[in-house]
């Protein structure tokens, strides 16, 4: 097995010089790593340690939509950091799954309201790609935020 990279920087597996029908994604944060492998459908994962960031305002501006920003900025202390990293990892997982790298501006879509609160999984359609449904799962715990985004096969869409 070998690895190739798409024009936008997304790695893929190659077997006998052909792109293999498996998807994978890798992330690391602090001392933790996360690897996901699936038999098909685009896939992205992200993991981040929930630690104070120097310029949270810039990170919010770079990654969150209008409603998400309002919710994060109205939260305080550890609750704010918890929500911020939850949204950040879900959005980064989607950006990685999507495969366009910097071509997908994370501020142009929002995580479904239920997942911003208590739901640990849900589905999402990006305005830039209306014919694709993504399944999102929040894998986070107290110290780490983590998420996985996986492209649903047409027959599995809600």
């Amino acid at each position: 097995m070998a690895f190739g990279v798409s024009p936008h920087g997304k790695p893929f597996a190659r077997v006998r010089d052909r792109q293999a029908d498996i998807s994978f994604s890798v992330s690391h944060g602090g001392w933790h790593g996360l690897i996901a492998i699936a038999p098909g459908g685009r896939l992205g994962v992200d993991i981040e340690e929930r630690v104070e960031r120097r310029r949270l305002d810039l990170l919010i501006e770079a990654a969150l939509g209008e409603e998400e920003t309002a919710e994060v900025t109205s939260a305080t202390g550890s609750e704010q950091l918890h929500l911020f990293f939850k949204l950040w990892t879900m959005k980064e997982a989607l950006v990685k799954a999507h495969g366009l790298g910097m071509g997908l501006d994370a501020t142009t879509f929002e995580i479904p309201r239920g997942m911003r609160r208590m739901d640990v999984s849900g589905t999402l359609v990006l305005p830039q790609m209306p014919d694709v449904t993504w399944r999102l799962e929040d894998l986070g715990e107290e110290r780490f935020a983590a998420a996985i985004a996986h492209e649903l096969a047409p027959e599995a869409r809600p």
Partner: peptide, 18 residues
């Protein structure tokens, strides 16, 4: 290329704002 050096796309977007 910083996108190939373990820096996430959202971190890059925030850095460019800086």
């Amino acid at each position: 290329n910083i996108a190939e050096a373990g820096v996430s796309s959202q971190d890059i977007a925030a850095f460019l704002r800086l």
